[in-house]
Design a binder for these strands. Structure first.
Lengths: 237, 237
DNA sequence: CGTCAGGTTGATTAGGATCAACACAGGTGG
DNA sequence: CCACCTGTGTTGATCCTAATCAACCTGACG
């Protein structure tokens, strides 16, 4: 029924209208997008896009969480990014995907056939400029993550991840002090370049040190944000 | 005198004219860029941009090599990317830099005052679309590197790096079998998330295993590209 | 000739991976 | 209702890769 709620909405009532790729579109442009958009839903655990496959559509996450990841032949896996509501999936100007995208929770996407969207991008400066802005933001985020993967300790990685979730969870620009983890231990391990055991051990250690409180497997609250931030390692911003 | 050669050139003779941010500009647009561009040179080792500083200009690498990097307070450093000729430096739409950019060799840049360039981006679809294309390419490259940093062994990291340089060195789309390393051992270590000793040891090991031939400290030749590729770890593309 | 930056190699340590056992909740089916 | 299974998470013991600490080499340069 949540699906139905979303699927019935037109763009003006869309929950991601002002943050997604269409954020800066005017009424006329929105109308054009409205005509060619379609919704798709994916169940938790299902693949949304396979590396190497033809990319038939692109689109925005409306609800749920997905991951961008890549698998090595021997099974090693690295998650390159979290896709939360308003994030964009797919790459106009390329016809096969280079990464896997997987639904972590149930996911609803607002999709466009890739060719139609490429045409819109080419003809609508508001969209190409917004795409550019979002791509540059993601590039900065990817580079931040490279510092984490290359140089941070396991404990710093976990603390950084928790801070990231706390920041992304809050609606305004504060930091949430209580939230649900969007990922399993395994998915966190793949995101942080660790094993599941190391993730688990460091959660336990942070709890023992009173830096976090684990309400259950997923619920976390943070008694002292600054203390946790200090554990995340000191890179500038 | 090489500088002079470059500095005297107008855009039509520019060595990066067809790969840089201006690649898809028409004659009129190039003329507009030509009017507001200026060249700057940086000596090897000099900073081009400091994280946190106001970003006065953006621009393209015309010649030389630079790195994008970030330093942690305790001195740990991670390099996020190599900037080779035609790569773009800086981020329109943001007024302070978030990463350090450092000249590795002597570097010549084709610069634009940030405000003027932002105006051009807003008014010139050819530029914003090219910027988007380049940003998406860099994003893919950054994500590939995340797999390397998070999951590859030291030996795989070195082999992957060598393959990357071999690929980027060749002019056409083949792979060079002989090239000069653009980075010192230390800079490679910072790029690969390793220490200088581990880099050195793995170079020695690859040489002992006849996978590479070290002509001197910088010159490398690769007797069997496929064998080296196999050492790089098997991720899809 | 001394110094210094860049590089190599060896010995030792440590952080995280691996292997293994177990805990616990939520289904599912008899 | 309970026995069983499965997916998820925790904890312990051990191993191994790469970090750390240290010595030394080489060539460039004042």
């Amino acid at each position: 029924m949540i699906q139905a709620l979303i699927l019935d909405r037109n763009c003006s009532q869309c929950p991601i209208r002002h943050r997604a790729v269409c954020a800066t579109c005017d009424d006329e442009e929105i109308l054009a997008l409205d005509k060619i958009k379609f919704y798709r839903t994916f169940e938790a655990g299902q693949p949304i896009m396979w590396s190497g496959d033809r990319m038939e559509f692109v689109g925005s996450v409306v609800s749920g969480t997905a991951t961008i990841e890549r698998l090595m032949e021997d099974g090693r896996k690295q998650t390159m990014g979290l896709l939360l509501p308003s994030d964009f999936i797919g790459r106009p100007g390329r016809n096969t995907a280079v990464f896997d995208v997987t639904a972590v929770t149930d996911v609803t996407l607002c999709c466009f056939r890739r060719e139609s969207f490429e045409k819109m991008v080419a003809e609508t400066p508001h969209i190409s400029q917004r795409m550019l802005e979002m791509a540059l933001d993601e590039l900065d985020a990817a580079r931040d993550w490279m510092l984490l993967l290359g140089r941070k300790t396991a404990r710093e990685k976990i603390a950084t991840f928790l801070m990231m979730v706390a920041r992304r969870t809050s609606i305004d620009d504060t930091v949430a002090t209580r939230f649900e983890l969007p990922l399993t231990r395994e998915a966190m391990a793949d995101f942080l370049g660790l094993t599941i055991e190391t993730v688990s051990r460091n959660f336990s250690a942070l709890r023992k040190d009173k830096l976090i409180v684990l309400e259950d497997k997923r619920g976390v609250s943070i008694p002292d944000i600054d203390a946790l931030q200090a554990e995340a390692g000191s890179d500038a911003p």
